[in-house]
């Protein structure tokens, strides 16, 4: 399978020397321009006030549905629950066959085989979290074994978490090497790197993590696991979007973005799409380059689609509650 020019090759020639040593990497990451938090949040809030109506809204809703990584990451997940989620991913709204499919179903590695079986031939991807999700606290060997198990079970995409402890302690090269190792283990599968922005404490750290992930070969950079208090917000997603925009300008390599956790309403989703369009550009308005990690969001999008189609407000009786 031909690979897009990201990833496995490591950082492009123009940035090859920044990962040569821990010191060089630290100098590079700390040399990135600082984030102005007040300006950032004001910008994110201002873009959230755009009014998206009628045909533009219909387009945005369909696009958002097609960008969803329909997720179930609970201790109580069963094969039955994953199969019903897969059925929903294939046909989100059985009353309206024009509804697009979602992009992927995201599960724990032990259920990836169940999902792969249920999604076979549908075009919906199987994404599996790996590397000791959600804490990322395990030996590298364990993380690699976790990744290989997910791939063997049929995962098309791997969602890995970084070691936040190492990152916050300043051991950037260690985090880099770990992502590289998982990148190699993942082979041709698309690799999403989760930073858990809610634990990184500053926007500067989120920007550094973004560049670190992209240098190490991430196909997607992803905000959160959905398991901590603060998940995807417009502001932290804006930092990621600026990073992928700047990275492509610097290297020519395009990287995707995935906000995850806490995006529950169609209105929120449309705000994120505005952020994407106004920050990274419309090259990213495609489910190859932008995803929503969500579960309840899909139902709200479907209810909004029904409202647009029929003119009457819909309710939870008219979508499947999972």
């Amino acid at each position: 399978m031909p690979r897009i020019p990201t990833a496995a090759a490591g950082p492009p020639a123009s940035l090859a020397d920044v990962t040569a040593s821990d010191g060089a990497l630290r100098r590079f990451l700390h040399g990135l321009p600082g984030v102005d938090p007040v300006g950032l949040e004001a910008r994110a809030a201002a873009l959230g006030t755009r009014s998206i109506k009628t045909t533009a809204k219909a387009y945005a809703l369909d696009l958002a549905v097609s960008m969803i990584d329909l997720t179930t990451l609970e201790g109580a997940d069963t094969p039955g629950k994953v199969r019903s989620l897969c059925a929903k991913a294939r046909t989100p709204d059985p009353t309206d066959r024009t509804t697009p499919q979602v992009a992927a179903v995201c599960v724990y590695p032990d259920l990836a085989a169940t999902a792969a079986g249920a999604l076979a031939g549908s075009g919906v991807q199987v994404a599996s979290v790996a590397t000791a999700f959600p804490s990322g606290r395990a030996a590298l060997e364990v993380k690699l074994a976790d990744t290989r198990a997910a791939l063997a079970a049929g995962a098309d995409e791997i969602d890995m978490v970084i070691d936040r402890g190492a990152f916050l302690a300043g051991r950037y090269l260690e985090v880099y090497e770990q992502i590289r190792a998982v990148r190699e283990a993942a082979g041709t599968a698309r690799l999403k790197v989760i930073f858990e922005t809610g634990e990184l404490s500053t926007y500067d750290n989120i920007r550094r993590a973004s560049w670190l992930g992209m240098l190490a070969g991430a196909d997607f950079i992803k905000t959160s696991t959905g398991k901590v208090g603060v998940n995807a917000t417009p502001a932290n997603t804006l930092v990621l979007l600026e990073a992928v925009r700047d990275y492509r300008a610097a290297t020519g390599v395009q990287v995707g973005v995935k906000p995850a956790g806490g995006i529950r309403t169609a209105k929120d989703a449309v705000k994120f799409l505005v952020l994407v369009n106004e920050t990274a550009g419309d090259d990213w308005l495609d489910n190859r380059w932008f995803r929503f990690g969500a579960s309840s969001l899909l139902n709200d999008l479907l209810m909004q689609r029904q409202k647009l189609r029929t003119g009457r407000y819909s309710g939870p009786d008219y979508v499947t509650v999972d």
Partner: peptide, 9 residues
């Protein structure tokens, strides 16, 4: 009319 048409009423 909005309430009368609302699917969740």
């Amino acid at each position: 009319p909005t309430l009368a048409a609302h699917q969740d009423v």
